[in-house]
Protein backbone atom coordinates (compact mmCIF):
# COMPACT_ATOMS: atom_id res chain seq x y z
CA UNK A 1 0.00 0.00 0.00
CA UNK A 2 2.73 2.39 0.95
CA UNK A 3 4.65 1.45 -2.13
CA UNK A 4 1.63 1.98 -4.35
CA UNK A 5 1.01 5.37 -2.78
CA UNK A 6 4.60 6.27 -3.31
CA UNK A 7 4.44 5.15 -6.92
CA UNK A 8 1.30 7.17 -7.50
CA UNK A 9 2.86 10.16 -5.83
CA UNK A 10 5.96 10.08 -7.95
CA UNK A 11 4.09 9.37 -11.20
CA UNK A 12 1.82 12.31 -10.53
CA UNK A 13 4.73 14.60 -9.80
CA UNK A 14 6.76 13.39 -12.76
CA UNK A 15 3.91 13.73 -15.25
CA UNK A 16 2.92 17.15 -13.91
CA UNK A 17 6.51 18.30 -14.05
CA UNK A 18 6.89 17.10 -17.61
CA UNK A 19 3.78 18.96 -18.70
CA UNK A 20 4.98 22.04 -16.87
CA UNK A 21 8.45 21.97 -18.36
CA UNK A 22 7.75 20.89 -21.90
CA UNK A 23 6.65 24.27 -23.29
CA UNK A 24 9.86 25.73 -21.89
CA UNK A 25 11.95 23.19 -23.71
CA UNK A 26 10.00 23.88 -26.84
CA UNK A 27 10.42 27.63 -26.49
CA UNK A 28 14.18 27.31 -26.07
CA UNK A 29 14.38 24.91 -29.00
CA UNK A 30 12.19 27.31 -30.95
CA UNK A 31 14.65 30.12 -30.38
CA UNK A 32 17.07 28.16 -32.55
CA UNK A 33 14.64 27.50 -35.39
CA UNK A 34 13.01 29.45 -38.19
CA UNK A 35 9.40 30.63 -38.14
CA UNK A 36 8.28 27.86 -40.45
CA UNK A 37 9.99 25.15 -38.43
CA UNK A 38 8.32 26.45 -35.28
CA UNK A 39 4.91 26.52 -36.96
CA UNK A 40 5.41 22.93 -38.06
CA UNK A 41 6.18 21.87 -34.50
CA UNK A 42 9.85 20.99 -34.94
CA UNK A 43 11.05 19.45 -31.69
CA UNK A 44 14.80 19.55 -32.06
CA UNK A 45 17.34 22.33 -31.84
CA UNK A 46 18.22 24.14 -35.04
CA UNK A 47 20.99 26.45 -36.15
CA UNK A 48 19.07 29.73 -36.27
CA UNK A 49 19.91 30.94 -32.76
CA UNK A 50 22.48 33.45 -33.90
CA UNK A 51 20.29 34.70 -36.73
CA UNK A 52 17.33 35.17 -34.39
CA UNK A 53 19.48 36.86 -31.75
CA UNK A 54 20.96 39.23 -34.27
CA UNK A 55 17.52 39.99 -35.61
CA UNK A 56 16.13 40.82 -32.18
CA UNK A 57 19.07 42.79 -30.79
CA UNK A 58 19.52 44.55 -34.09
CA UNK A 59 15.93 45.74 -34.24
CA UNK A 60 15.39 46.62 -30.57
CA UNK A 61 17.36 48.02 -27.70
CA UNK A 62 16.85 44.94 -25.57
CA UNK A 63 19.06 45.95 -22.60
CA UNK A 64 17.13 49.21 -22.23
CA UNK A 65 13.76 47.47 -22.49
CA UNK A 66 14.85 44.89 -19.91
CA UNK A 67 15.99 47.67 -17.62
CA UNK A 68 12.62 49.41 -18.01
CA UNK A 69 10.79 46.25 -17.02
CA UNK A 70 13.07 45.62 -14.07
CA UNK A 71 12.86 49.18 -12.85
CA UNK A 72 9.08 49.30 -13.05
CA UNK A 73 8.62 45.92 -11.40
CA UNK A 74 11.21 46.54 -8.68
CA UNK A 75 9.75 49.87 -7.62
CA UNK A 76 6.23 48.50 -7.81
CA UNK A 77 7.06 45.49 -5.64
CA UNK A 78 8.76 47.49 -2.88
CA UNK A 79 6.05 50.08 -2.62
CA UNK A 80 3.12 47.78 -3.02
CA UNK A 81 4.39 45.45 -0.30
CA UNK A 82 4.84 48.42 2.00
CA UNK A 83 1.56 50.16 1.24
CA UNK A 84 -0.63 47.08 1.13
CA UNK A 85 0.77 45.23 4.14
CA UNK A 86 0.57 48.39 6.25
CA UNK A 87 -3.02 48.87 5.19
CA UNK A 88 -3.89 45.23 5.76
CA UNK A 89 -2.37 45.31 9.22
CA UNK A 90 -4.34 48.41 10.05
CA UNK A 91 -7.56 46.94 8.70
CA UNK A 92 -7.08 43.72 10.64
CA UNK A 93 -5.65 44.83 13.95
CA UNK A 94 -7.13 48.28 14.45
CA UNK A 95 -10.60 47.69 13.10
CA UNK A 96 -13.12 50.49 13.35
CA UNK A 97 -16.53 50.76 11.82
CA UNK A 98 -15.25 53.17 9.22
CA UNK A 99 -12.22 51.07 8.37
CA UNK A 100 -14.39 48.01 7.87
CA UNK A 101 -16.52 50.01 5.47
CA UNK A 102 -13.49 51.18 3.58
CA UNK A 103 -12.20 47.63 3.41
CA UNK A 104 -15.47 46.33 2.01
CA UNK A 105 -15.44 49.04 -0.63
CA UNK A 106 -11.87 48.18 -1.51
CA UNK A 107 -12.81 44.53 -1.94
CA UNK A 108 -15.55 45.60 -4.31
CA UNK A 109 -13.06 47.72 -6.26
CA UNK A 110 -11.05 44.59 -6.88
CA UNK A 111 -13.83 43.31 -9.08
CA UNK A 112 -13.78 46.12 -11.58
CA UNK A 113 -12.14 45.16 -14.86
CA UNK A 114 -9.23 47.37 -15.77
CA UNK A 115 -10.67 47.93 -19.24
CA UNK A 116 -13.47 49.95 -17.62
CA UNK A 117 -11.03 52.37 -16.02
CA UNK A 118 -8.73 52.93 -18.95
CA UNK A 119 -10.18 56.18 -20.21
CA UNK A 120 -10.49 57.90 -16.81
CA UNK A 121 -6.98 56.74 -15.92
CA UNK A 122 -5.69 58.12 -19.17
CA UNK A 123 -7.23 61.48 -18.33
CA UNK A 124 -5.68 61.51 -14.87
CA UNK A 125 -2.25 60.61 -16.17
CA UNK A 126 -2.48 63.18 -18.91
CA UNK A 127 -3.36 65.77 -16.27
CA UNK A 128 -0.33 64.75 -14.26
CA UNK A 129 1.84 64.92 -17.38
CA UNK A 130 2.64 61.25 -16.99
CA UNK A 131 1.73 59.89 -20.41
CA UNK A 132 4.69 57.90 -21.68
CA UNK A 133 6.20 57.89 -18.18
CA UNK A 134 6.86 54.75 -16.22
CA UNK A 135 5.25 56.34 -13.20
CA UNK A 136 1.90 56.10 -14.99
CA UNK A 137 2.21 52.33 -14.77
CA UNK A 138 3.70 52.22 -11.30
CA UNK A 139 1.20 54.47 -9.53
CA UNK A 140 -2.00 52.53 -10.22
CA UNK A 141 -0.18 49.24 -9.55
CA UNK A 142 1.29 50.14 -6.15
CA UNK A 143 -2.06 50.01 -4.43
CA UNK A 144 -2.63 46.36 -5.25
CA UNK A 145 -6.00 45.53 -3.76
CA UNK A 146 -5.45 41.84 -4.07
CA UNK A 147 -2.39 42.15 -1.82
CA UNK A 148 -4.35 44.07 0.80
CA UNK A 149 -6.79 41.19 0.84
CA UNK A 150 -3.98 38.63 0.88
CA UNK A 151 -2.08 40.29 3.71
CA UNK A 152 -5.19 40.75 5.78
CA UNK A 153 -6.05 37.07 5.41
CA UNK A 154 -2.55 36.25 6.57
CA UNK A 155 -2.49 38.70 9.45
CA UNK A 156 -5.64 37.08 10.82
CA UNK A 157 -3.49 34.28 12.15
CA UNK A 158 -1.03 36.68 13.75
CA UNK A 159 -1.56 36.43 17.50
CA UNK A 160 -2.92 39.60 19.12
CA UNK A 161 -1.16 38.65 22.35
CA UNK A 162 2.19 39.49 20.82
CA UNK A 163 0.93 42.90 19.81
CA UNK A 164 -0.54 43.55 23.24
CA UNK A 165 2.60 42.36 24.96
CA UNK A 166 4.77 44.65 22.87
CA UNK A 167 2.44 47.52 23.56
CA UNK A 168 2.83 47.03 27.26
CA UNK A 169 6.54 47.24 26.73
CA UNK A 170 5.90 50.65 25.21
CA UNK A 171 6.52 49.93 21.52
CA UNK A 172 4.64 52.07 19.02
CA UNK A 173 2.36 50.39 16.51
CA UNK A 174 4.73 51.16 13.62
CA UNK A 175 7.58 49.68 15.61
CA UNK A 176 5.55 46.57 16.33
CA UNK A 177 4.76 46.24 12.68
CA UNK A 178 8.28 46.60 11.37
CA UNK A 179 10.20 44.91 14.18
CA UNK A 180 7.89 42.07 15.06
CA UNK A 181 5.19 41.43 12.48
CA UNK A 182 7.35 41.83 9.40
CA UNK A 183 10.09 39.42 10.50
CA UNK A 184 7.54 36.85 11.61
CA UNK A 185 5.60 36.88 8.36
CA UNK A 186 8.44 36.44 5.95
CA UNK A 187 6.90 33.60 3.96
CA UNK A 188 3.80 35.71 3.48
CA UNK A 189 5.93 38.56 2.19
CA UNK A 190 7.77 36.15 -0.08
CA UNK A 191 4.57 35.01 -1.71
CA UNK A 192 3.33 38.58 -1.94
CA UNK A 193 6.58 39.71 -3.53
CA UNK A 194 6.30 37.00 -6.15
CA UNK A 195 2.75 38.00 -6.87
CA UNK A 196 3.52 41.70 -7.11
CA UNK A 197 6.53 41.15 -9.29
CA UNK A 198 4.74 38.85 -11.70
CA UNK A 199 1.80 41.15 -11.84
CA UNK A 200 3.94 44.08 -12.75
CA UNK A 201 6.23 42.15 -15.06
CA UNK A 202 3.28 40.75 -16.99
CA UNK A 203 1.23 43.89 -16.96
CA UNK A 204 0.02 44.47 -20.49
CA UNK A 205 -2.95 46.79 -20.77
CA UNK A 206 -1.50 49.73 -18.81
CA UNK A 207 1.86 49.79 -20.62
CA UNK A 208 0.00 49.38 -23.89
CA UNK A 209 -2.02 52.49 -23.18
CA UNK A 210 0.52 54.70 -21.48
CA UNK A 211 3.85 53.86 -23.08
CA UNK A 212 4.09 55.33 -26.52
CA UNK A 213 7.73 55.11 -27.42
CA UNK A 214 10.02 52.19 -27.86
CA UNK A 215 12.59 53.49 -25.39
CA UNK A 216 9.91 53.25 -22.70
CA UNK A 217 8.69 49.78 -23.65
CA UNK A 218 8.56 46.83 -21.32
CA UNK A 219 9.43 43.27 -22.33
CA UNK A 220 5.78 42.20 -22.28
CA UNK A 221 4.85 45.05 -24.55
CA UNK A 222 7.73 44.19 -26.85
CA UNK A 223 6.61 40.57 -27.13
CA UNK A 224 3.09 41.58 -27.99
CA UNK A 225 4.29 44.10 -30.52
CA UNK A 226 6.65 41.52 -32.02
CA UNK A 227 3.69 39.25 -32.56
CA UNK A 228 1.46 41.86 -34.15
CA UNK A 229 3.53 44.64 -35.68
CA UNK A 230 4.50 42.75 -38.79
CA UNK A 231 2.33 40.76 -41.11
CA UNK A 232 5.10 38.22 -41.32
CA UNK A 233 5.75 37.68 -37.63
CA UNK A 234 9.12 36.19 -36.82
CA UNK A 235 8.48 33.35 -34.38
CA UNK A 236 12.16 32.68 -33.82
CA UNK A 237 12.73 36.24 -32.67
CA UNK A 238 9.60 36.07 -30.54
CA UNK A 239 10.84 32.91 -28.89
CA UNK A 240 14.14 34.56 -27.99
CA UNK A 241 12.31 37.56 -26.59
CA UNK A 242 10.09 35.27 -24.53
CA UNK A 243 13.12 33.39 -23.22
CA UNK A 244 14.85 36.64 -22.27
CA UNK A 245 11.71 38.02 -20.65
CA UNK A 246 11.36 34.87 -18.59
CA UNK A 247 14.85 34.94 -17.07
CA UNK A 248 14.25 37.58 -14.35
CA UNK A 249 11.07 35.96 -13.05
CA UNK A 250 12.90 32.65 -13.11
CA UNK A 251 15.76 34.06 -11.03
CA UNK A 252 13.29 35.57 -8.59
CA UNK A 253 11.76 32.16 -8.12
CA UNK A 254 15.08 30.48 -7.56
CA UNK A 255 15.91 33.06 -4.90
CA UNK A 256 12.53 32.93 -3.22
CA UNK A 257 12.48 29.19 -3.32
CA UNK A 258 15.43 29.08 -0.90
CA UNK A 259 13.25 30.92 1.57
CA UNK A 260 10.53 28.36 1.05
CA UNK A 261 12.88 25.43 1.53
CA UNK A 262 14.22 26.96 4.73
CA UNK A 263 10.78 27.51 6.12
CA UNK A 264 9.75 24.04 5.14
CA UNK A 265 12.70 22.25 6.73
CA UNK A 266 11.89 24.19 9.86
CA UNK A 267 8.30 23.05 9.81
CA UNK A 268 9.19 19.40 9.13
CA UNK A 269 11.79 18.82 11.80
CA UNK A 270 10.88 15.83 13.94
Amino acid sequence: MKKLMSLLKYSFLIISSFISIFPFYWMIAGATNTSNQIAEGKLTFGDQLWVNLQGLFGAYNIPLIMWNSLKISGITVIFSLLVTSLAAFGFEKFKTKTSEWIYTIILLFMMIPLAALVIPLFKIMAGLQLVNQHLAIILPAVNNLFLIFFFRQSFKSFPNEIIDASKIEGASNYAIFFRIVFPMMKSTYAAAAIYAFMNSWNSYLLPLIFLQTENKYTMTLLISSLSSASYVANYGMQMIAIVIATVPTLILFLVMQKGFVKGMTGSLKM
Binding site: K71, Q129, N132, Q133, H134, L135, Q212, T213, E214, N215, K216
Partner: peptide, 11 residues
Protein backbone atom coordinates in the same frame (compact mmCIF):
# COMPACT_ATOMS: atom_id res chain seq x y z
CA UNK B 1 12.67 62.13 -12.87
CA UNK B 2 12.73 59.39 -15.43
CA UNK B 3 10.91 62.14 -17.34
CA UNK B 4 13.63 64.25 -18.87
CA UNK B 5 15.35 61.23 -20.35
CA UNK B 6 12.20 60.39 -22.29
CA UNK B 7 12.77 60.53 -25.97
CA UNK B 8 10.32 63.12 -27.22
CA UNK B 9 11.00 62.21 -30.82
CA UNK B 10 8.72 59.22 -30.88
CA UNK B 11 5.65 61.39 -30.83
Amino acid sequence: TGGPEANPEDF
